[in-house]
Nucleic acid binder design. Structure first.
Lengths: 215, 215
DNA sequence: TAGATTGTTAATCGATTAACAATC
DNA sequence: TAGATTGTTAATCGATTAACAATC
């Protein structure tokens, strides 16, 4: 199925969630599921689920529902899980380390092939299965191994410059944890932001709306 | 201004970003800014910015623009920055530690008053300015100090149960880093999710749409 | 005053939900 | 076949953009 190109933003952001739920169902040995049943579990309307699943080519059967395994594979394909993209991590401080220890990259569509830092205390250190490389060797590394994605777990000041440098070195996708916004020369290059501070402020705002106060 | 109640979802999620940009302008000594100028910098339409700023009560002046300092304070109020909410952190592994070291909670509307873990190797350890407490003491702690928010940096399995327990103990806002989705008894309690895995899959999908492949 | 820029209404666009005929 | 459930079209809802009169 090549319909992925037409998947609208709103649907795209629901895909990982569908993927997770279907994975759970699969583990539980569920073979088929209807849009209404899945909707109940996921807190969504059956209509939306059918609409969404149709953007990538109607895999249901009338009177039956959806085959969980088939749908799961289908979404995995659209997400690009089985097509791992080479990635490097910039910044192996506590956050970079936490991420390496927490996430199975291959289950999310990536293969990490190098991790970098500029801190002499970290360079050469073993973190998980990776040895921290000197950021001075970044250029040579990129020329040799041609990674396509970069995960930025560095401080705000460093992130913007590093991103531009990486763009020049051929990086075509960014996962950004720094609080700054990244502006590249090519605005079509995808940048996924994990803005911790923004998320926390959103929570603060929502709690305030609910008139939640300390005693 | 009490208009915050009417701010729609879409606007709410843009507020932290406005806040950051205005903070930068303030630091640069910019006194006033027009919606078109801000739009140019933030990659948004002037129309949207005016529309957004109006949801919380029109602070601009015709022919002049917006006073940066005034607007900044206004947004801070809506976000609840100056009204710190007491919070506890559950899970002081690498991720919890990274967050404590990275985020200035008071600048984001929270005051962390306790951090917990169940790992004997961590309990009693000093992390930043906090001493890790035994999760066995959670109940007593909550009864005594009545925190209103909880940050969940624990593994998936533990998160759902812990959240329910915390809801019963009076927690009224969750910042969730675990990959699972949290279902509370009261569905109006705000839960802000930081789903690292989902974000990474979204990046994978977007890169795939751009036909980005490894060489 | 004239120019600039807001506040606000109307038009457009996109996303969600409802409805129901098609069909397994 | 009858019942269930999809695929798909139409209706609704919300969010974005355009336009322009109000006014500093």
């Amino acid at each position: 199925m090549k319909a992925s190109r037409t998947v609208p933003q709103a649907v795209l952001h629901r895909l990982p969630r569908y993927y997770r739920y279907l994975g759970d169902l699969l583990e539980d040995g569920v073979e088929r599921i209807s849009s209404s049943e899945l909707g109940k579990r996921m807190n969504a309307t059956a209509s939306q689920i059918r609409q969404d699943f149709n953007y990538f080519g109607g895999f249901g059967h009338q009177g039956y529902g959806y085959n969980v395994a088939k749908l799961y594979r289908e979404i995995a394909d659209i997400l690009g899980i089985s097509n791992p993209k080479t990635a490097i991590i910039l910044g192996m401080g506590r956050l970079g380390t936490a991420i390496v220890n927490r996430i199975t990259f291959t289950k999310r569509g990536f293969e990490v092939i190098g991790v970098f830092d500029n801190d002499p205390a970290l360079i050469g250190k073993k973190i998980g299965t990776f040895t921290v490389l000197d950021v001075a060797k970044l250029e040579d590394f990129c020329k040799e191994h041609k990674p396509v994605a970069a995960f930025l777990t560095l401080p705000r000041e460093a992130a913007a410059d590093t991103a531009l440098k990486l763009e020049a070195l051929g990086i075509r996708g960014f996962w950004n944890f720094s609080s700054g916004y990244i502006r590249l020369n090519d605005p079509t290059i995808p940048v996924e932001n994990m803005h911790l501070g923004d998320s926390l402020m959103t929570l603060s705002c929502r709690m305030q709306e609910h008139d939640i106060k300390n005693d």
